[in-house]
Design a protein around this nucleic acid. Structure first.
Lengths: 130, 130
DNA sequence: GTTCATGCAAATCGTTTGCACAATG
DNA sequence: CATTGTGCAAACGATTTGCATGAAC
């Protein structure tokens, strides 16, 4: 009843391609890569397999939040808390630590103009609901 | 030739609604709110006006990255650098500062299980291209 | 009156899903 | 053979866009 996972050449290749890149590709990019070996591959298969690989923990989906655009009338930089249960986003009033961008510069040479910290957890409302 | 921006009741109301909430609403949510006053409002108008307000700096669009899902075969937590020019995403090897979640807890009471820092700037490749 | 903003509907685009067939075990 | 994975195409859902009409100036 657990539902088995069978081997699939397509899935193996998808994971391999993903392991061999340092970029953070989209499904389409992976599709184009893998299609060189399996020209009949379909995008749907890529999405399905990525979903399985994420579920199995071999792959991370970069969590850029929900599918929806979200807006706010608060323009100054600030951090966010994202509830993993209800998907809500809350502003945080933590002070901005400007030394972080300096640390980034000295460690990597990259010049960032700003940064945002995203904390992930369970918000108060959701932790009350058992 | 600059193209003028005229006053519009709909846009005023959209900004007002956005200013009065502490949440980070979607376009649809705003649409439903504003429609109580202007029942003929269309979603397209909401999107158009949000775009204008963002361009004018009155509103921020929460930058959750591109429309596309992005994947990576790197499962351990790490930070990211996002290029504002070419949209590329790079992994960073900065150490994870676990004291941040403790600071969050003592400042707000919120318990985060993890966090991610996103630095925004111009990547090396793009800063070379003039 | 000229130009910009609106409402409506159709188009777009990334992602998901139903289905018949092929591959796995 | 029983079940899972695939390709294909259609469906889906958020966002964008073309167009005729209405509002701003």
């Amino acid at each position: 009843m657990a539902g088995q996972t069978r081997k699939s050449k397509q899935r193996d290749r998808i994971l391999e391609v993903l392991k061999q890149t340092r970029s953070h590709p989209t499904a389409k990019w992976i599709y184009d890569k893998v299609r060189k070996l399996y020209p009949d591959l379909s995008l749907g298969t890529v999405y399905r397999n990525l979903g399985m690989l994420v579920k199995q923990g071999f792959v991370s989906k970069l969590d850029f939040g929900s599918l929806y655009d979200r807006f706010e009338a608060r323009t100054l930089p600030h951090h966010h808390f994202l509830c993993e249960q209800c998907g809500s986003v809350s502003d945080l009033d933590l002070p901005i630590d400007h030394s972080l961008t300096k640390k980034l510069k000295s460690a990597t040479g990259l010049k960032a103009s700003r940064h945002e910290i995203r904390f992930y957890g369970v918000c108060e409302k959701c932790s009350v609901k058992k």
